[in-house]
Design a protein around this nucleic acid. Sequence first.
DNA 1: AGTGCGGCCTGTCCGC
DNA 2: TGCGGACAGGCCGCAC
Length: 276
Amino acid sequence: MPELPEVETTLRGVEPSLRGRTIHEIIVRNPALRWPVPPEIYQAEGRVVSHCRRRAKYLLFGMDGDGEDADGGLLIHLGMSGSLRVCAADDSPRRHDHFDIVLDGGRCIRFNDPRRFGTLLWWEAPAEAHPLLATLGPEPLSEAFDGSYLWRRSRGRKGAVKNFIMDGKVVVGVGNIYASEALFLSGIHPGRPAGRISETRYRALADSIRDVLGRAIRHGGTTLRDFLNSDGNPGYFAQELLVYEREGKACFHCGAPVRRRVIGQRSSYYCAQCQR
DNA sequence: AGTGCGGCCTGTCCGC
DNA sequence: TGCGGACAGGCCGCAC
C-alpha cells in the first residue's frame, strides 16, 4: 500500500522517538512476513539507534554509528498494508501487530500489517550492498533523477511508460497511485511505449513525478483504505488526486470522463483527451 | 536484457 | 444473510 510519500511520512513520524534511543528488546509475535524474520535482527537489542533513513520504500535504522556509518541495522518494508506506530510498550497488541521494537523509556515502535507483505530484516554495512537495495534506481527527489535520465533509460523499451516508471530499477518509489497522477499531470498516455516518448516530454514527466511526490509528502501521504501514519492518523493527499479512482468522473482539465484500464495487471486511470 | 506473469496474504466490497 | 470472486497502494523470482 504505502508508496514513497507514505514511507517518508512514517519515517518522519518514528524518527524522533527512535534516534538516540536504546533498543531494549524486539518482540516478534508473527515471524511469517514476506520473508521469515531472521534471528539476526536480535543483534539490535541493547544497541543505540544512531540514524534513521529511507531508501526507496525501505526504512533503514542504523545502530551505534556516527552519522551514517553504522555497521548494520534494521531494514523494514511496509509492503502493501503495513504501518508503524509509536505507542506505549504495555499497550495491548491488536490484531496483525506482528512485531514491536521496544525502546528504553517504555515506548515502542509497533508494526501492523494485515496482509503480511511487509519485511523485517537485518542489513550489514554498507546498506546499499544489501541484495534488496543493490539494484535500485535513483531516488525521484534526488539530483540524479531528471528527464534526460528517463529518456536515456527508456530507449528501446517497448513496454508501457506506466510500467517503466513503476520499475524500481529505473526509479524508486513511484507506485500505482502516483504513476497515474504524474502521467496525467504531464499529459502522457499511460499505455504509450516508453521508448517512443521524446526527451522534452520526459522532462515534463520527471517534473510531474517530483511535484506529485513532494506534494503528497507535504500532505502526510495518501490514505485510500488503510494507510495510517505513526500517530495512527490518515494522510490527506487523497483529496488532491486528479485521476486515481475517479473512473467515469469528469476530467478536471477538459471534462471528459476519466477512464480506467488495466496495464501491467494494475488499474490505471487517465483522460483519453488530455493524455496522448 | 526486457517483459509478462504467478504468488505471497487478508480484508472489503459487489453481485447473485 | 451467505457465498464466491474480484480487487487492493509492492515486488520478488521465474519463464520466455
